[in-house]
Design a protein around this nucleic acid. Structure first.
Lengths: 153, 153
DNA sequence: CATTGATCTCAACCTTACTTCAGGTCTCAA
DNA sequence: TTGAGACCTGAAGTAAGGTTGAGATCAATG
């Protein structure tokens, strides 16, 4: 018997319990399982039984989703933990620090967009070639002089 | 003849031109048209011809999408303009001010999430009932005392 | 006139993240 | 033991935002 085996059946959670306590639907649990984000064992009657840490796993998934991380990437991150274990405090520290970085980038790019938008709200914008909103990646000046994207109106 | 009729055919743009100059694929133009976000007239040979302001319209659509506004809502906003006209400077001011508000809310909620995450990175978090990350909407205390969502581990 | 590239329509497909449905099985309290 | 409610599987559906393909026509150039 492995030490990592699913916890005593006595303490196992049914799908309904996990759904109620984690706030995700049973169908979502099936879905996560198919994608390899969570795992279960089966009862004698082929019903799923979850060990307690599925709750923590689902919590991690939900937080990551709020951050905007796609399930596939969440799955990859979880899969990289040794023995497919549920993140412990140390793992969580690493994961969350990583995702916090992603989040920061998202916030920054939205903030930049907001600043550009502010600069454009009053300027009769979207009609001017130089508008940074319209040309966010500075993808201009490839075919010589003259208007890019839009002509002056 | 209405003053709002599509501009002289002489100045009309072909789908390819619009695609090149706006940066969206021809298939996307078709898609936007089906959704009612842009319009076209047809040449004698049944090909689409766009009046110049489609470029501005597409620019508005792209900015709104960057902000995170779904197409359906963009469509609704554009449809509310008189005569289905393309936003002029004044319209743009109103639209962008509105969307800027949405953007601000998105930034705020992400920033709040980030702050919660910061508070949780070091705390061995996700194992504590009171964790604000796990219980973002403060949906607790509905079934008396004891653990919510997750038990202490 | 012929060819090549641009367009046309409509249907089908794609991705993400799930939900819903149908038909059948388990579990558990009374 | 029995009935209600929970659970099972696999397939199909949903929503957003498009893309891809097939088969046919247009438009412009040599």
């Amino acid at each position: 018997m492995s030490k990592i085996a699913v916890a005593d059946i006595g303490k196992a959670l049914t799908p309904g319990e996990v759904a109620r306590r984690s706030g995700v639907a049973v169908s979502a649990l099936h879905f996560y399982e198919k994608k390899g984000l969570i795992h279960s064992v089966r009862s004698s009657g082929n019903q799923r039984r979850y060990s307690r840490d599925v709750l923590r796993r689902v919590a991690v998934i939900k937080v990551a989703q709020r951050i905007g991380i796609p399930l596939a990437e969440i799955g990859r991150a979880l899969a990289e933990l040794p023995d497919g274990r549920t993140p412990n405090a140390h793992d969580w520290k690493r994961l969350s620090a990583h995702w916090r970085h992603d989040l920061d980038e998202r916030i920054q790019s939205l903030t930049q967009l907001r600043d550009q938008l502010d600069g454009c709200i009053g300027c009769g914008c979207l009609s001017i070639n130089a508008c940074r909103l319209r040309n966010p990646l500075d993808e201009l000046s490839e075919d010589g002089p003259g208007p890019r994207l839009l002509e002056p109106e």
